[in-house]
């Protein structure tokens, strides 16, 4: 992972993120795919997109980013707990 953060890695990430964006637009734009598939599908490629962004463009795949990553994940963890509490315990 650490060795890959050169020019090539960025190009691949760039191409992939465009591909993911296009896929999302196609999935919605076609209008023929069922909603039950499209919504989870674009959510999942959205998450993949976010990971690409964080890893390549925010440079989190490079060395010395252990603490930012740890704390971002902890932040997500705390945020998910709040969402979970509201969605499944308060308004269940």
């Amino acid at each position: 992972m650490a060795k890959k953060h050169g020019y090539k890695g960025h190009l691949i990430a760039f191409a992939l993120s465009i591909l993911l964006t296009v896929l999302a637009f196609i999935a919605v734009g076609l209008g023929t795919i069922s909603k039950t598939f499209v919504i989870p599908f674009i959510l999942i490629i959205g998450i993949a997109q976010a990971i690409f962004q964080a890893a390549y463009w925010m440079h989190l795949n490079q060395k010395g980013h252990d603490f930012p990553i740890t704390f971002m994940l902890s932040g997500f963890f705390a945020a998910i707990i709040v969402v979970f509490a509201c969605s499944s315990l308060v308004w269940w």
Binding site: A78, V82, A85, C86, L89, V90, W91
Partner: peptide, 12 residues
């Protein structure tokens, strides 16, 4: 609204 909403967030 919901009355336990505050309780949950407060205890989180």
């Amino acid at each position: 609204g919901n009355v336990v909403l505050y309780e949950h967030i407060f205890w989180i």
